[in-house]
Amino acid sequence: MRTTITVNGEARSLDLDPRTTLLDTLREHLKLTGAKKGCDHGQCGACTVLVNGVRINSCLSLAVAHDGDEVVSIEGVGTVETLHPVQQAFLTHDAFQCGYCTPGQICSTLGMLDELAAGWPSQETAPGAAPVFNDAEIRERMSGNICRCSAYPQIVAAIKDAREAMA
């Protein structure tokens, strides 16, 4: 099926098998291998990308269903020469080890910060109250991204640092 998706600001028109997931479209068709396949079933978060600004699991998404959508993968966040503040903070705080979950963690962070700014609650948010930016909220909101190297404390530190840098 002919499908056009804007990926990292560039319109990409592809003839796709309807079975092709957004993740495999990025990785196998567009050679954008930053989004990772950790489980392929929405159980790890390594494939997290932003679709129309919202973080989702690209493994549980058919590419043909995203015709006309805007996708940002890690390759659209920053480059080695010009790291995004979240990327820089992950580097500075050693918020990864093997690095395989990292692109998903960073895309998830970007989505999470927007959700917080929009006042979306989490299960750590007091009933009826606006969410506050604290460690418990970060931990809960980043729990959809598994890091088996377990850089969890470093990830929390990086996110706090990045938010200040972005302010």
Partner: peptide, 10 residues
Amino acid sequence: EGPLKVTGTA
């Protein structure tokens, strides 16, 4: 190799 890992280019 951190810059490559945080940019998804490793």
